[in-house]
């Protein structure tokens, strides 16, 4: 018997596999057993009702995809009345992703979503901060620290800060989030990208630019997960390009305590349950009894410390 449980601060997950925000909803219950998952993570919501971006909202690039869905939201009241109760039927922790355009609005939704049935709050700080020239909070350590400090005062629930790859300061942002009281880091969101149809010469996304996700994001978010796990004491949750058991094992070795699966679920809705049973089989085959034997086991002793802090290619 192998032990798939993993601890994220005060929360223990029955296995380290959970969905990534925006790639999962109640609709998946029509295809998989939702009780099999380590946690449920919902699509980012805002306090107010809001529409999404113009279509087309997705396009594919070689072996991956771009999206500019935005955050269409039915608002927090709808969410508390309809979505939170839905997930109560499952014996799985519920993680709610929230966002806002400034620190005060962020604190307001954080407080409002601190209700029974919600086990942790994921802070999507990849949203543009209107008080900081539209730069996402997670691009800079100062704005990350400022908003996370506000949020820490607004809720007693575990707060997971979701970082962005669109920064040259991964390590500093991770440390700022920890300093401000984050309970875990989710690493990471999508990478800002673009694609153009050469026939029509029009951008392929209605919003011109969008976020890259899927297999081609993996080396980047894996690098970030590694960098973060090196410097922080709180758990790191890996996210980006995971579609196989091997991808999960790689993130765990890099230092992640759990992972999120996003785009892979669009390609194979059964990806998460398949990965969970595959991970169990992998551990059995390799004589690994416990996930802690994998987490952070990367053999990087020979490398110079400076490499960890490298932000750009040599």
């Amino acid at each position: 018997m192998v032990d798939l449980t993993t601890k994220l601060g005060t929360i223990t997950l029955k296995n380290p596999i959970m969905p990534a925000s925006g790639t999962f909803s109640e609709d998946l219950a029509g295809v998989i057993d939702m009780n099999a998952l380590g946690a449920h993570v919902t699509k980012t919501i805002t306090y107010e009702k809001r529409g999404g971006n113009p279509t087309p909202r997705v396009c594919e690039v070689r072996g991956s995809m771009l999206n500019s869905i935005g955050i269409p939201s039915k608002g927090i009241n709808h969410f508390i009345q309809n979505v939170v109760p839905y997930y109560r039927d499952y014996d799985v922790p519920l993680v709610v992703s929230i966002s806002a355009h400034n620190a005060d609005d962020f604190a307001r939704i954080c407080e409002a979503i601190t209700v029974p049935g919600v086990d942790a709050i994921e802070i999507n700080i990849s949203c543009p901060n209107i008080e900081d020239n539209g730069k996402a909070f997670a691009m800079r350590p100062s704005s990350t620290q400022q908003v996370m400090t506000k949020l820490r005062g607004a809720s007693d629930l575990p707060l997971w800060a979701k970082l962005s790859p669109n920064t040259g300061e991964t390590v500093e942002v991770a440390l700022a989030a920890q300093e401000a009281g984050a309970d875990a880091l989710v690493v990471s969101n999508t990478l800002l990208s673009m694609a153009i149809d050469i026939q029509s010469r029009k951008p392929k996304l209605g919003n011109l630019m969008g976020g890259l996700s899927g297999p081609s994001l993996k080396p980047i978010s894996l690098r970030m997960a590694y960098q973060c796990a090196k410097v922080v004491d709180i758990p790191v949750i890996g996210c980006g390009g995971i579609s196989t058991v091997e991808d999960v094992v790689e993130y765990l070795i890099a230092g992640a305590s759990a992972v999120q699966v996003g785009t892979a679920t669009f390609i194979n809705p059964t990806a998460m349950p398949n990965i969970i049973s595959g991970l169990e089989a992998y551990m059995t085959k390799h004589g690994i009894a416990d996930l802690s034997e994998l987490i952070g086991s990367v053999r990087d002793d020979d490398a110079a410390d400076a490499v960890v802090f490298m932000e750009t290619a040599p």
Partner: peptide
């Protein structure tokens, strides 16, 4: 479409 199941809103 991306997911085809109602999850992604695209």
């Amino acid at each position: 479409m991306a997911c085809g199941l109602g999850m992604c809103q695209c």
